[in-house]
Structure formats: structure tokens, C-alpha cells
Design a protein around this nucleic acid. Structure first.
Lengths: 146, 146
DNA sequence: GAAATGTAATTCACGTGTTAATTAAAATCA
DNA sequence: TGATTTTAATTAACACGTGAATTACATTTC
């Protein structure tokens, strides 16, 4: 096990890979004046259905302080609605509004086209394999302890 | 090519994978009061030798505005020195100081131990394969055009 | 050699990442 | 019941990511 050169290391490779993939989506998001994180939150919430904040944060890989700000912004723009959970005054229940759903549907064709283009350039099999390997990495590290 | 669910998509998988890997290094960095990005800049500069700002930014995957701030902070702490390039008053020449080198050397054993533990949990072969696949993804997307 | 163009670095503005502290409400315990 | 502890969400503080604008210096063009 050689000491990893910074160039060939997981942190760098994962960072670069993510940057270069996201770069393809950024023009689309910028045209609609939403951030990458706002888009992620919106999609996760739409796919999962109404969620509490903690659960949404976990599923979207967003930390609670960021989620608070993101929800605030998206509530003002009427893409997400916020309600209280019955029987527990601490919890917040979040849902996608009709306007939020409309935004998702508006962007979906382009989003798919962009993703498919990436997949095509990389190769569909490679793509599936990479997703599997990333999942395995996440699993191998996520047992909290070590 | 199915529309990617947010859960199984490259952006999410790359994000989560990177987060979970970096989480292992954060305690070490926090103990020395340096950020992940400062550490990356320092190591890239140490490995490559003195560089101009633009080149360092590229190699460390840091945008110029961030690099400006990072260099400022690390210059104040004497980990990096800043000089002018002869014959071109616009360019900045950056180098690791002795204190910077000492910091690197102090952290290197732990850094290697952390990385090796990750590699061991994931599997050395898988690890190399994953690095290869990530490099390929970066290459397949980095031809600017598409 | 002066004006126009190009480039490196910085600054600005705003949103997010991160950790720690705080607030509000539940749950637990005495 | 009342006090303590736990939990959900927010707030605070500071650093980075990002795109746009600015500044300073070089290069090109006329």
C-alpha cells in the first residue's frame, strides 16, 4: 500500500469526477435560477413524497443547517411547503408544491438528455459498474465504527 | 437508459462517496486547525514544487477566488510563501515553506494509516479499479466540447 | 508608441459546508 | 408533577464554491 499521491487518490478522484459531471447540469440549473442543492432537495422530496426535515436531509445528503436555508428559499419561491407534524411540535413536514412539481417536470427531459449523454460517452456498462463500486465503497465505510 | 433515480445517480453516488471518505480525515485536519482544501493545496504544492497560482488551482481543483483566500490564510500562518514571477508582474509564484513541509511530515503517518484502512476495508484491487474507472470518467467528460 | 485586446489575480455577492451553540418541544426519570 | 435529559430544528460563525465584475499587467494591433 503505497502512500497515495494526491493526484491518484480517492478524495481527489471523487472530487474531480463529481465536478466534471455536475458541470454538465449547471447551465440548465442556472437558467432556472436554482442551485444544485436546491434541485437535489426538490427531486428527493418529489421522489420520496412528504418527509420530515431530518429524513430529507439524510436522503439528500445535506446537513441540517444547509437544509434550513434551502427550505427557506424554496418556500419563498413556493416550490416546497412546510407544515408541522401532529403530535410532535419539533418536527417539520415538507412537501413539494404543484409549482415545484411543475418545475421538475419542466426540467426532466433536459436532465435525462444530459445524463444519457454522459452515460453514453462513458459506456452504459461501465456506468452501472461504477455505480455499483461507489455503492460498495459507501457501504464499506458507513458502518460508523470502522 | 432509464431516467436516473436521484438515489442511484452519479452525482449523488460521487457526493456520498466523497463525504464518507473525507469524514475519516476530518478529525485529523481539525486537530491541526486546517481545512480540507488548505491541506489539499499544501500537499499538491509540496508534491509539484513551486507553482504559479493558476497552475496550483488547476492541480488542486480549487477555483481562483478560493485559492486567493486559502493562500492568504496559509501565508499568514507561514505554511506557504508567495513571490512574484520575474518578467510577468501578474503572476504569483507559490511555494511550501519549511513550516509547511514540517506540517506535512507531521501528518503523513496518520494520513497514510487512514487511507490504508479505507483501502483495506474496500479491498486493494477494488480500490485500484475504482481509481481507474474514475479517471476514465473524468477523461470521457473532459474533452470540453462533449 | 498609443490604443485595444487578452490574461492573472483579486474582489464581490450570495449560497452552501461544517462545527458549535442555541431554542423549543418530547421523553425520561425522580 | 417537576426536573433532567434527549431530540429536532434553527442560528451563528467562518471557510469554500460559484459566477460576475474589477484591477493590474502583458501582448497585440495599428
Amino acid at each position: 500500500m503505497l502512500p497515495p499521491s494526491t493526484r491518484r487518490s480517492l478524495p481527489m478522484a471523487l472530487l474531480r469526477a463529481r465536478e466534471i459531471v455536475m458541470a454538465r447540469f449547471r447551465p440548465m440549473l442556472a437558467r432556472h435560477d436554482i442551485t444544485e442543492q436546491q434541485w437535489r432537495v426538490l427531486r428527493v422530496l418529489a421522489e420520496a413524497g412528504p418527509l420530515e426535515a431530518t429524513e430529507l436531509a439524510k436522503q439528500a445528503s445535506i446537513l441540517p443547517p444547509s437544509l434550513t436555508r434551502i427550505i427557506k428559499a424554496m418556500e419563498e419561491r413556493k416550490f416546497i411547503s412546510r407544515g408541522r407534524v401532529k403530535d410532535d411540535g419539533r418536527r417539520t413536514r415538507l412537501a413539494v408544491t404543484a409549482a415545484g412539481q411543475a418545475l421538475i417536470e419542466e426540467l426532466t427531459p433536459e436532465r435525462i438528455a444530459i445524463y444519457d449523454a454522459i452515460e453514453k460517452r462513458y459506456g452504459a456498462e461501465q456506468h452501472q459498474k461504477l455505480l455499483d463500486m461507489l455503492e460498495r465503497l459507501i457501504l464499506s465505510e458507513s458502518s460508523e465504527g470502522r
